[in-house]
Design a protein around this nucleic acid. Structure first.
Lengths: 340, 340
DNA sequence: TTGTACGCGTTATCAA
DNA sequence: TTGATAACGCGTACAA
């Protein structure tokens, strides 16, 4: 670990520390005579000099790090967003520090504090919030402390934290989906609504309900099943629904992985997806595009969501929190064939 | 940005900087009188003190960062590994800096250099290598420079870089798969072999071939199709295979996403997967477990692979590069029903 | 047990 | 254009 420093380079090149520094990072309006510059660069190369980012951060007063907090990086929803974030970050010459919280708000808060210690330039937070105001308040406080230190924050989801937010059109997309399904001839609707208190799930349900209402249709109360926001939640919800003997044409699951679970449950119950019962999801997860039958869903451009959030944090701070809408679009596929 | 420093805390608490430091991080054998310690902690809380990780890194001479380099974080293969890495890192009190290179070796090298600047404690590199020795040499050099600076490295894949490596049993798993398919009654084999020069693909092909040979079976030359290591590569390869009119029972795709593409191509060609033609993959990607028919594959415990690699980098440096085998296991499902 | 003072590697300020 | 030198925030010998 004979870590070579800038002083070593300067000595080797026979110049002062200051000159070496200027030669290497091309400090703003300060310029260095080409001859000296070359000597410094040569010395740096010869000694395998590698600038110490921590020291630079201290001296400059700012880092080149941006933090990304997600619920679960193994979930394709979040890994797609992460992909957008890393791309935008690299574009801006920043490194991404990743935190996967496993849906634990305590860890979200802890990570915010770590990122604050790291003096990360910005934090992008993805993942549905809940309506637990006690937790939200602590989160708000952590974010406020971070921002007081000069950090930028962008959230992905609902604009409930008074920070820049990329808002996914959950309600509008679900309403469009409802309309499209109605247009395809479906009349008896059911929904796998996800857990109570899950805001994304709630928004999608609200939109779906509103969309139905616009066509004088509705969701019978016992046609709404609450279960986890996961594949297994979808399976379990669908199982209950089928067991209840409810007369249903089509089932709306509030996300794709729940829809996948629902499809599995239908199959296991001997009900044909598509011809027997329609199933629709939300998100349009890329890896799920080859399901059979192919899944009707609402596409959310997750990669763009990630880049948009990142760019928001890098933009000039605005007096008012910015809200950037991202359009979602209905994609009708074979899991909901036209009904006549 | 009135960033409060440890000096502020010390002054507020009426103690020296040293005492404040000791009180807050509980410096090794130095102890602080409880009364003072409480006063310091109270002051820190009152002032919302947040230690500067960069300054700590400089003073301590080591960071709390570990780097993760993957080809594509949106790919479930890598996001599963990432999940294991973040979990193990959190366990060890470290932050993960993520780089997604888009399969570009130049960017891999660039990221290694950035992580070196960051003085990251360790780097975990996931993703198949190629046999391009020019590129491999530059990578080797970058890694050597990083390690010379005291950094630890673990690779996931093939042990060709003289560093600690988590080796996935590609050949053995593929051989087992070949045996299992033969045992299920399949006799006329074909393979979607992935691109030439892709070492993971090659290992899996070699294993599959060897496994067949052990049962006096073989892969006709024109039953091996080369195409990209992606979903679309699988689709295209299968299309070619079907078009060629080759007489085939079962197709081995060297990874799951290629198998998914192959399934789609078979369907588009009117060939029933399972009853008409068997298809098998490799990896057992979680999100793909609900395909219809369910996909026969070789399970690789990717999360464990990620944690294992992380733990390798954190262990005491060994004189010789360590190689940790991770077993892969055949999972027979409906895409290759028993043949009689 | 506490405090003083130096060093970590850079950048930036100010003279020269 | 170049060069001393003072920060940056913290840890830690060393002395008290």
């Amino acid at each position: 670990m004979p870590s070579v420093t800038l002083s070593d380079v300067a000595r080797e090149a026979g110049v002062s520390l200051a000159t070496a520094s200027r030669a290497i990072n091309g400090s703003a309006n300060r310029t260095v005579r080409p001859e000296l510059r070359d000597r410094v660069l040569a010395a740096a190369a010869a000694l395998h000099y590698s600038p110490d980012a921590n020291a630079q951060a201290m001296a400059r007063g700012r880092t080149t790090t941006i933090g990304l907090i997600v619920h679960d990086i193994a979930d394709p929803y979040f890994s797609s967003i992460a992909s957008g974030v890393t791309a935008a970050a690299e574009q801006a010459g920043l490194m991404v520090t990743l935190a996967s919280t496993g849906h634990d708000p305590e860890r979200e808060i802890a990570f915010i504090e770590v990122l604050q210690s790291q003096r990360a330039r910005a934090i992008v937070m993805a993942g549905g919030r809940t309506d637990d105001e006690a937790v939200n308040d602590r989160l708000r406080a952590a974010l406020a402390a971070y921002r007081a230190g000069g950090g930028a924050v962008a959230m992905i989801g609902q604009p409930l934290f008074d920070v820049d937010t990329v808002v996914i059109e959950n309600a509008a997309g679900a309403a469009d989906l409802a309309g499209a399904l109605h247009g395809a001839g479906y009349r008896r609707f059911a929904a796998l609504a996800g857990p109570a208190g899950h805001l994304t799930a709630r928004d999608r349900m609200d939109g779906f309900t509103a969309g139905l209402a616009a066509h004088d249709a509705a969701l019978a109360r016992d046609h709404v099943v609450r279960s986890a926001f996961t594949r297994d939640g979808g399976y379990e919800g669908m199982r209950q629904l089928l067991e209840s003997g409810a007369a249903v044409d089509v089932v709306f699951a509030v996300n794709d992985v729940m829809a996948v679970g629902a499809m599995a449950a239908a199959r296991d119950a001997g009900v044909a997806v598509g011809t027997g019962i329609g199933i629709a999801g939300f998100d349009d997860i890329v890896t799920l595009r080859d399901l059979t039958p192919s899944l009707t869903t609402v596409r959310v451009p997750l990669l763009e969501v990630g880049t948009a959030a990142t760019e928001l944090t890098l933009a000039e701070p605005a007096p008012e929190p910015r809200v950037q809408q991202v359009a979602s679009t209905v994609v009708l596929r074979d899991s909901t064939p036209p009904r006549n």
